[in-house]
Write a protein that binds this DNA or RNA. Structure first.
Lengths: 232, 232
DNA sequence: GCAAAAGTGTTTGGATTACACCCATGC
DNA sequence: GCATGGGTGTAATCCAAACACTTTTGC
């Protein structure tokens, strides 16, 4: 049994890290920042910030996301908490990782006082990161893949209007597999999509039809039928 | 941009809560404690404790589990972190919930200085708990169910030697469904089990064969074949 | 014999797989 | 015309659900 005074426990710092994922040309990208200050100055890192003493984790995460991307009302998914006592050289900082799924074209990415540079990097080309951020990124990516398999979060990172091929590429990239085109289309048949009267433009092949996700009909299907989203 | 001094952030307390699950007569139980001190004295709660300033989250969780159950070398699964500023009346305590799966017969549950009582309670009969522990318990149970569907963790809560019917009851309880006996047995065919030369005793019906989980062959199947555990 | 649960086989329909084929566009 | 991807059909196979039936124990 420990005999340390309660007050001595109030010596931690707590932060939230936000892994922002997007999709471009079939590749899942992550938004990383190049740190503008020590420690790990000039090294790429996951955006994150300390949490205010009276701030909820959710609010802090939304604040961090907004400061970096100017996006609001994006769903934040909690992933994992990292509490190794030595993970931060300046003191004990416990961090809780989250991820957000955004459309890359919606983001007005910009440098800031704590980020001298900022860039979208394909998940398979991520360099060495600051702190334990490679570990955090990998485990957060694993949670994303889990969600991609069981929830329709893919539509949060695809453009509003997408082709079925883009959808397929996203899953192929995430699960590192190749799928048969015809079979993939049969598999996604139950997902309620809105078939738009629009086609791709300026492509050097037959232009593909555009679709968007029918979120309303999806909810209805879950409630009324026994429907469960399931990929892979 | 925040302008608060870095030192002001070191005003938190951090704790680990351990939801201990077991299985008895086909029902998933949780080990709860009746608090011996304020706040919430005499109220049921999830066991947990503050983390030492230089202690890793994993070590702290193992310590808490051992103090309560005298069990070591039990896998701890991280679930979710709760950081609402008002969740603890005595200060800002951020807690990270975990779960452990144990065999109820292995646990030497005992009261302690911080728990005047301790009991296994079926998940469907959990009373009002202290703090935000009902919320924590529910979300941790959801993570357990997720794991039950994709990893062979069921065998950590069943007796070493179990009947196929016990296995079925566990899944029926977790997913709140009824399964056909014959179909269930076909579904679990790919799971490598050791068929023991032993049977149930003192039952007033045909005694069932006992099995145990073949962890070694399971690992081999994953590595050599393309096998993926998948229930429900 | 009867109750209760163990344990197995058969049929059916729907989903998954592999593969083949035709279509529209830019160059 | 041809390269490139868009888009669809078919047949074989596997898998899941529904259901029926036999077996073994205690009382």
């Amino acid at each position: 049994m420990y005999k340390i005074d309660f007050q001595n426990f109030f010596t931690y710092s707590f932060s939230s890290d936000i892994v922002i994922f997007g999709c471009q040309e079939g590749e899942i990208h992550v938004l990383l920042i190049k740190r503008a200050m020590e420690p790990f100055k000039d090294i790429w890192a996951i955006p994150g910030d300390l949490i205010y003493p009276d701030e909820d984790l959710q609010d802090a995460s939304e604040r961090i996301l907004f400061e970096l991307t100017k996006l609001r009302n994006i769903e934040l998914h909690q992933a994992q908490t990292f509490a190794n006592p030595n993970r931060h050289p300046q003191g004990r900082v416990i961090t809780c990782s989250h991820f957000a799924l955004v459309r890359i074209e919606d983001v007005v990415a910009q440098a800031s006082s704590w980020a001298e540079d900022i860039d979208w990097i394909p998940m398979r080309e991520v360099p060495e990161l600051a702190f334990d951020h490679n570990l955090i990124l990998q485990s957060t990516y694993d949670v994303l893949k889990q969600k991609l398999a069981t929830e329709p979060v893919c539509f949060d990172m695809l453009p509003e209007k997408f082709t079925l091929h883009e959808l397929q590429l996203l899953y192929e990239y995430a699960f590192e597999i190749n799928m048969d085109k015809a079979n993939f289309r049969k598999k996604i048949k139950p997902i309620p999509l809105i078939s738009l009267d629009e086609k791709q433009k300026n492509v050097k092949h037959r232009p593909a039809k555009l679709y968007s996700f029918d979120r309303k009909r999806f909810q209805e299907k879950i409630e009324k039928e026994h429907y469960r989203f399931k990929m892979y």
